[in-house]
């Protein structure tokens, strides 16, 4: 069920859990996305976003160094910045208005991640 809107959309996954990065890559690639990189923490994620210039950054809220909201702010403050979608194993109600204040397009709980959910936000 490859959605043609997604085909070729380049993605960077920023998350400190290797299990999630692997599963998300598998899921997104199965749905036609092109996962161009992975990063285990905020600083690496910001650098990788600048270098790889992906269309989309899938960004975990809880990172070991910076929190996802400030990483989102820094990525989206640049010109021609990629779309950022925040993910977390927590619920969006845990974060209140922080998500939209960060410049991110939206939030998806990790368990509900899918190509369709992403496509809706970007």
């Amino acid at each position: 069920m490859v959605d043609h809107v997604n085909v070729g959309t380049t993605v960077l996954i920023v998350d400190d859990h290797p299990t999630f990065r692997a599963t998300a890559r598998m899921l997104l690639e199965a749905e036609g996305y092109d996962v161009v990189g992975e990063a285990p923490d905020g600083e690496t994620g910001i650098t990788a976003a600048g270098r790889l210039e992906p269309d989309l950054v899938l960004l975990d809220v809880n990172l070991p160094d910076l929190d996802g909201f400030s990483v989102a702010e820094r990525i989206t403050s640049r010109a021609g910045a990629p779309a950022v979608v925040l993910v977390s194993s927590r619920d969006s109600s845990d974060f209140g208005p922080l998500v939209l204040g960060s410049g991110a397009r939206g939030f998806i709980p990790k368990g509900e991640l899918s190509g369709a959910a992403l496509a809706e936000l970007i």
Partner: peptide, 22 residues
């Protein structure tokens, strides 16, 4: 809880979703 069981359950949920799709 967050780093352990919760991550595994997240992965589990995604794997089941993918399995359903295929």
């Amino acid at each position: 809880l967050h780093d352990g069981a919760q991550q595994r359950l997240v992965a589990l949920s995604l794997q089941i979703a993918m399995a359903l799709g295929k």
